[in-house]
């Protein structure tokens, strides 16, 4: 391996790592607020990429009826949840959020899709389709489980993942898709050729990290989310409903997922089941970050990306073995650093 190849591999690793980082950030966000390890995060990525590809091809993506269906279910779930306190205005608010909003999105997708309105509009429509799914999924699947153990939440998460992957197969078929890049430009840098697309990707990842950091440290809503994560009862006393915080975190996760999908779709082929393995690697990064720290998770994600890239050069058949065995020492190190057996309150 010479220096040029090493540089190329590093570049490849960083670009892949950026996607893992985006997933890891969403996982950390959702976990800190709801204790759910969001395995379906990968599906948001696939949905984002494949929805964009459908729009690009001028067809109405299957995610649109799904959005309407989920909205309807969320409406029912919200009504059931608030049945004791719901008045006319409350009902109207729920109907707006759960029925009218997806309705508008679906209508615009239906009108715009055959017109092929150009990449930018298509991306916006894609984000508008996938983002609300997060909140709806929270209302339908996870809010009723708010008091369950992390393990039960995890298995419920597996259930949602199975259902979403199955739906992905129905909507998009077994074969993959790609989309045109956001930017055709490329810049020579020494031996490297840096594509505009990969710059977009890294830039947006950084922007999201900074955005999350600002959101959590500077805004009231962000602080409220953190507060919910730290102490649910306390947050409730302060007037922050954990359910609302959960819903918000899921929507943000779905947004980041869809955006990641939009970003990788031009770089690689995305399949209905692409989400699982990249989601798992994002999960690895999130865990190394202790499911708590954004910078640590992002750094771990880049590390995973680089290890993967180098491993696929050195021993491609054993790439996953190398990636996953490499994390064991890291996990040990993190375990030893975290407090030993002291479960005293």
């Amino acid at each position: 391996m010479d220096a040029t190849i090493l540089l190329l591999l590093l570049q490849d690793g960083v670009v892949n790592g950026a996607i893992y980082a985006l997933i890891a950030l969403s996982l950390v966000l959702v976990f800190t607020v709801t204790r759910v390890i969001l395995i379906p995060q990968g599906e948001f990525v696939a949905y984002g990429a494949l929805t964009l590809a459908s729009l690009e091809a001028g067809t109405l993506p299957g995610t649109v009826p799904l959005l309407l269906g989920l909205g309807g279910l969320a409406f029912l779930a919200d009504c059931a949840e608030g049945r004791h306190s719901l008045d006319g205005r409350g009902l109207l608010r729920l109907a707006l959020r759960d029925l009218a909003l997806p309705g508008i999105v679906a209508a615009s997708a239906w009108i715009l899709a055959p017109m092929k309105p150009g990449l930018l509009i298509e991306i916006l429509v894609t984000l508008a389709i996938v983002t609300p799914m997060g909140g709806f999924l929270h209302a339908v699947a996870f809010r009723p489980l708010a008091h369950a153990s992390v393990l039960v939440l995890l298995i419920a998460s597996v259930g949602v993942h199975l259902a979403l992957t199955g739906l992905g197969l129905v909507f998009f078929g077994a074969e993959g898709s790609r989309t045109p890049p956001l930017s055709e430009a490329s810049f020579p840098a020494g031996p490297l050729l840096i594509s505009g697309q990969s710059l977009w990707m890294i830039g947006l990842t950084l922007a999201i990290i900074v955005g999350l950091w600002l959101f959590f440290s500077r805004t009231l809503l962000g602080k409220a989310l953190i507060a919910t994560a730290v102490n649910r009862l306390g947050a409730r006393l302060m007037g922050i409903a954990p359910a609302l915080a959960g819903r918000l975190s899921f929507s943000v996760a779905a947004f980041i997922g869809a955006l990641s999908g939009v970003l990788i779709a031009p770089l690689t082929t995305v399949y209905y089941d692409t989400g699982f393995l990249i989601g798992l690697k994002g999960f690895v990064a999130a865990i190394i970050g202790g499911l708590a720290s954004y910078p640590a998770a992002a750094a771990a994600a880049i590390l995973v990306g680089i290890i993967e890239s180098v491993a696929s050069f050195e021993a491609s058949a054993f790439k996953e073995v190398i990636v996953f065995m490499a994390i064991i020492p890291v996990l040990l190190w993190r375990s030893l650093r975290s407090a030993p057996v002291e479960d005293e309150e």
């Binding site: 591999l9 770089l267 692409t274 990249i278 696929s312 050069f313 058949a317 790439k319």
Partner: peptide, 19 residues
């Protein structure tokens, strides 16, 4: 070189083959 169906990047394998 080998790769998995859902791999998002095969840069490593391709560089090795080209080398």
């Amino acid at each position: 070189e080998r790769y998995a169906r859902t791999d998002t990047s095969v840069t490593g394998q391709v560089l090795k083959v080209m080398a």
